[in-house]
């Protein structure tokens, strides 16, 4: 394998990029996505669709909820994971990360180490899911894209996420380490 010993290969594929490189590329991608699709980057909205599709398949009726009266949410409810653009993009993120890991030969299944991690993952997941719904977005949709859209909610979001991160840090050190 000559290619993998090439310095350029090592720099681009093997080694980690700098945070600044990441920042510039993510910003450019977000602007390009906004220009192309009319909406900036967001991640969590499709998660509510994934949940609703499963809930519907199990016999639930999410279409009666106020949330799904919103035209774009109502439309998504009729779609599936292969026809909903946001869902495809999210699966793309997973596979893009997997691709980067495999090309660098750094893939490893990391098992859950302790019951503390289970509790942390369950609690953290629920808090993020619920929080992102009521606050209109996550680190991407509200913080990154919200502030870049010059919307006040992005700034307020960031201020309170910082407070949340501070509380979370205390909890982490005390209970989850």
């Amino acid at each position: 394998m000559k290619l993998q010993e090439h310095p350029f290969f090592k720099k681009i594929i093997k080694d980690a990029w700098s945070y600044w490189t990441g920042a510039i590329l993510l910003a450019v991608l977000n602007v390009a996505l906004f220009a192309f699709s009319g909406h900036p980057w967001g991640i969590t909205t499709p998660f509510s669709y994934w949940g609703a599709w499963v809930f519907k398949a199990l016999g639930g009726q999410p279409e009666n909820w106020v949330y799904f009266q919103n035209p774009s949410h109502a439309k998504a409810l009729e779609q599936n994971i292969f026809t909903n653009a946001g869902s495809i993009q999210n699966i793309g993120i997973i596979l893009g990360a997997l691709l980067a890991t495999l090309l660098a030969s750094q893939f490893k299944i990391k098992k859950i180490k302790s019951y503390k991690q289970v509790i942390a993952a369950v609690l953290g997941g629920l808090l993020m899911g619920y929080g992102a719904r009521i606050a209109f977005g996550c680190n991407i949709g509200a913080y990154f894209s919200g502030i870049a859209s010059m919307s006040l909610h992005g700034w307020v979001w960031a201020a309170f996420a910082l407070i949340g991160a501070w509380i979370g840090s205390k909890l982490l050190v005390k209970y989850f380490m």
Partner: peptide, 30 residues
């Protein structure tokens, strides 16, 4: 166009919940 959403108490509560969750779960949505 853009992500321009209503700002109010729900923003503060939701963001704080998200902030706690992302730290203990070791990662946000992305």
């Amino acid at each position: 166009p853009g992500n321009i959403s209503p700002v109010g108490i729900h923003t503060a509560i939701g963001a704080a919940m998200f902030g706690i969750g992302m730290v203990i779960a070791g990662g946000c949505a992305s």
